[in-house]
Design a binder for these strands. Structure first.
Length: 427
RNA sequence: GGAGAGAUGCCGGAGUGGUCGAACGGGCUCGCCUGGAAAGUGAGUGUGCGGUUUAUCCCGUACCGAGGGUUCGAAUCCCUCUCUCUCCGCCA
């Protein structure tokens, strides 16, 4: 959520910033609502003030045996008009809140201009593409050769966009997740967390998935509304919701391995083949909660932590700075990490690292106590995939495939597979 | 699933209709004391929103788990919900 105060005082600057990402902020209707709100709030509060004064006087008068009929009469009048004013005010305030909840974050200055994917800027390219010397098979084909990916069985029980992994594919998938967790915990100083996979609507609102993107998440039927998490960002970031964190504890660095559930509404016909876009996938997620003056550095650092996994796996990738129009709703700045897929002869997103500034923190009421002011101030939140496990599996299979379809096990994973160095087709 | 108890400020814990933003204790901050420290001692110590100012100050308002109600007036009374704890049952 944007700072309402800042918005009030810099409305046009906000509107032109949001225009960078292609969001139209309706200046006129905002100004109209805001003007009414101000007037109504002043009126309401002065009525409340009058009511409090009267109530006090009535109490005192009664205790002294005075006649308080006049005061009671006025109080009844005040109560009546207060009822109307406050109802009107409430309506306006929720209108304003709805507007704010549906307004995306401001775009950081460093973000490149542009409205489409084509305007994204490649910042660096790392690693060497494998010289296979033969036509690359895609992961679906490789999975089939290893009898390790059963899309049909998954479809029978769960419908489209699911997969059953078996044997070496399941084990390789698990090894990847374990390796990522261990690396972030042991090398990068993150605390491992195991979190709920279902959350209440307010948690989804805190990180920005609600109210605007309800149709992209799975909602649980039941007594209470709950959502399957679309990413561990939601439970991890919400760890600081409604909290005031001591300065000494910052930055908080969390990592969690969770399933992620996405309805992929609006993605019909896109990536229908294979494991690239599923309703359920696994991800190792990094989250940092930082003080504002250190958040930019934390963002760059977190990105490098995600990159470290790709580097350790010796997967070729590139870092892309998303242009303003391609930024997610809550993000002020985002780097995507895209891994090279030989079968598609292109880079595909395998991680997205974003800086949210205080946008999520304001929604969550996540604050820290600034020792300089001794006041609670909003935190900054940062997160990124480190990495998407399913897509990493795809990348490993495709980049490490041999002519006969066997897969060389990346060195760092061998310990997780009992020392195995190759996954052969005929086993 | 059944029975009961509870939810108050950074923490503990009072408060059962008015002068309660909330006693008291602890903690913390700033002083005093001291060669320094402990002990002692004095003062201070919530947040959101709005107005004003915009560096503060100040004023108003709201907040005692959440939402609704009764009342001139609610932390205090009533209703609903959520969460926590204890006992029983069930269960991975």
């Amino acid at each position: 959520m944007l700072d309402p105060n800042f918005l009030r005082q810099n409305t046009e600057a906000v509107a032109s910033n949001l225009a960078r990402r292609g969001h139209h902020f309706d200046l006129e209707s905002y100004a109209a609502i805001e003007k009414q709100r101000k007037q109504l709030q002043v009126e309401t509060e002065s009525l409340q003030s009058r009511r409090n004064t009267l109530a006090k006087a009535i109490g005192q008068g009664k205790s002294q045996g005075d006649n308080v009929d006049d005061l009671l009469a006025e109080s009844a009048e005040v109560g009546e008009s207060l009822k109307q004013k406050s109802a009107a005010l409430e309506g306006l305030q929720s209108e304003l809140e709805a507007l704010l909840l549906n307004t995306p974050n401001l775009v950081a200055d460093a973000v490149p201009d542009g409205l489409e994917e084509a305007d994204n800027v490649v910042i660096r390219e790392v690693g060497e593409r494998p010289g296979l010397g033969f036509e690359a098979r895609d992961h679906v084909e490789l999975g089939a050769m290893h009898a390790g990916m059963d899309f049909e069985a998954a479809a029978r029980m769960s419908g489209a966009r699911f997969v059953v992994l078996r044997g070496s594919m399941a084990r390789l998938h698990r090894a990847l997740a374990q390796f990522m967790l261990d690396t972030h915990v042991n090398q990068h100083g993150y605390e491992e967390a195991n979190v709920p996979f279902m959350v209440l609507p307010q948690a989804m609102q805190g990180t920005g998935q609600l109210p605007k993107f309800a149709d992209e998440a799975f909602e649980i039927q039941g007594e209470h509304a709950r959502f399957l998490i679309p990413t561990a960002e939601v439970p991890l970031t919400n760890l600081v919701a409604d909290q005031i964190i001591d300065a000494g504890e910052l930055p908080l660095k969390w990592v969690a391995h969770t399933p992620c559930f996405r309805s992929e509404a609006g993605a019909y016909g896109k990536d229908t083949r294979g494991m690239i876009r599923q309703h359920q996938f696994e991800k190792v997620e990094l989250v940092q909660i930082a003080r504002p003056d250190q958040s930019q550095e934390a963002f760059e650092q977190l990105t490098s932590h995600a990159e470290a996994i790709l580097q350790a796996l010796k997967l070729p990738y590139r870092v892309v700075a998303l242009c303003a129009g391609d930024l997610g709703f809550s993000a002020q700045q985002t780097y995507d990490l895209e891994v090279w897929l030989p079968s598609q002869k292109t880079h595909r997103e395998i991680s997205s690292c974003s800086h949210f500034g205080d946008f999520q923190a304001r929604r969550m009421k996540a604050r820290w106590r600034n020792p300089e002011t001794n006041k609670p101030e909003l935190l900054h939140t940062i997160n990124g995939s480190g990495l998407a496990v399913g897509r990493t599996l795809v990348a490993v299979l495709e980049n490490y495939q041999q002519r006969d379809g066997s897969i060389v096990v990346p060195e760092v994973l061998q310990a997780y597979l009992g020392g195995q160095t190759v996954l052969s087709v005929n086993v």
